[in-house]
Design a protein around this nucleic acid. Structure first.
Lengths: 240, 240
DNA sequence: CGTTGCATTGAGGGCCTTCAATAAAAGTGG
DNA sequence: CCACTTTTATTGAAGGCCCTCAATGCAACG
């Protein structure tokens, strides 16, 4: 499958050929976004729904005093703002971290898509509930674990999510994050993120060089992270 | 208005008498939940949608090593789990913090309610987007502010939210949280939460005794907290 | 091949934690 | 309504995780 959203949804739902086709045609309006460019900025009025097709982006909030907080990473198959078109303005921004391909889908197109397709609608709902679960997991992670476990947790999560869209190969995947971005998403300073990554390497858990991560000991990393993937709700809609 | 959900939604939407009536009849199945009792537990299969009518609850997650993280406070007018009935099981629990009245609404009832009422549906959507915004704001708060500002921020937010449902009177409102709960929701220890509350009192910002909070200097508290209420998206649906 | 951004290292300090004891308050049963 | 128990709040001391500031090394890029 070449559309990462379809790959993701098929992990949990049984889409018809027709559903798949409808999704693909809805993703025709694709724009290239350069690295560090905003997909949508804080204060913008949301007009389109944005779907990541390739590359990475992040949801971020700039604070008064110059610091930044990253509240989500968006990878291929993730919606940036599925339901947000009814709001007056964005209360945060979304920026591309790498050159990215983003589908711009109009609200009417999306309404049309969901109105007649209950299975697809259920799958999209599932995806938004997972996104919310991820957000809660990040909150738990930041509030109750030390820096070492926080970074370990982040890596475990990204591994699972990328695996769901076919972007992991034998424990290896692209992790195009600077240490500052890792720090901004785990609530620490870049200096400390650096030291934690060194420790993860020294302990033989992973290698990370040039944006390529190689997970050497997934089991031990999960252990350290206290990682429980249940919040990603894998596979469940199929079973039900 | 006696139904807090209606009070909340009417801040942002123009509901018809018929909408209001439909909401009220959907809230007929009310159960009393004792303090410290779960409304729904982690692992439960969600069957009903739960709406807070009176009292406080919290969304929480217990970690391996015995610590706990509170990811949301639920006050009258808040849904506990509006969209969650399609998931296989709860990945976190919801517990009453005080004796509470909770409406149990069946999925079919809710579908029925939204199918024919676009204005109401929009308002409920708005509410879920605000909940998501609150979650992101908590993440930003915990990851990039010190303990003093974190607690200040929490109090600012609860002030706004309670004001929206008519539960604030001249800067005073009920805050039935233990210091441990404040700590579990701001990512600190109870000991430290205690010291921060003392500082807030000493600085003349508030008084807090017996679960009653009196906001003495709201402006200065917002300043300290770096509180920007835009994530609560007040008033916007009316304007649009 | 210089420039720019990112990664790395060191030293010093502060916010917050842990452990532990005590006081106060709230809940419980007779 | 009081004695008792349990929970919650408060205080102190010691220490660690992580921050701040600052310098240096390294790699990507035009």
């Amino acid at each position: 499958v070449e559309n990462p959203l379809i790959a993701k949804l098929e992990n949990v739902a049984c889409l018809s050929d027709d559903d798949r086709h409808a999704l693909i045609t809805a993703c025709q309006n694709v724009r290239d976004i350069a690295a560090n460019e905003d997909v949508i900025s804080e204060g913008d009025k949301p007009e389109y729904i944005h779907l990541m097709l390739a590359g990475w982006a992040c949801r971020y909030k700039d604070l008064e005093e110059g610091s930044r907080s990253i509240t989500a990473y968006l990878v291929p198959g993730d919606f940036c703002d599925l339901h947000v078109t009814i709001l007056g303005s964005m209360d945060h921004g979304i920026a591309a971290l790498t050159p990215a391909k983003v589908a711009f889908i109009s609200r009417t197109k999306m309404d049309e898509l969901t109105r007649e397709r209950p299975e697809l609608t259920r799958a999209l709902w599932w995806a938004t509930l997972v996104d919310e679960g991820v957000l809660r997991a990040w909150l738990v992670n930041i509030s109750r674990r030390d820096g070492f476990a926080r970074v370990a947790n982040l890596i475990c999560e990204l591994y699972e999510r990328l695996d769901n869209v076919g972007l992991v190969n034998a424990g290896k995947f692209s992790l195009p994050l600077t240490q500052e971005e890792i720090a901004d998403s785990t609530g620490m300073t870049p200096v400390h993120a650096n030291r934690i990554l060194q420790r993860l390497r020294r302990d033989g858990l992973l290698t990370l060089k040039g944006g390529n991560l190689n997970l050497l000991d997934a089991e031990r990393l999960k252990e350290i992270a206290g990682f429980d993937p249940s919040y990603l709700h894998p596979q469940h809609l199929r079973g039900a």
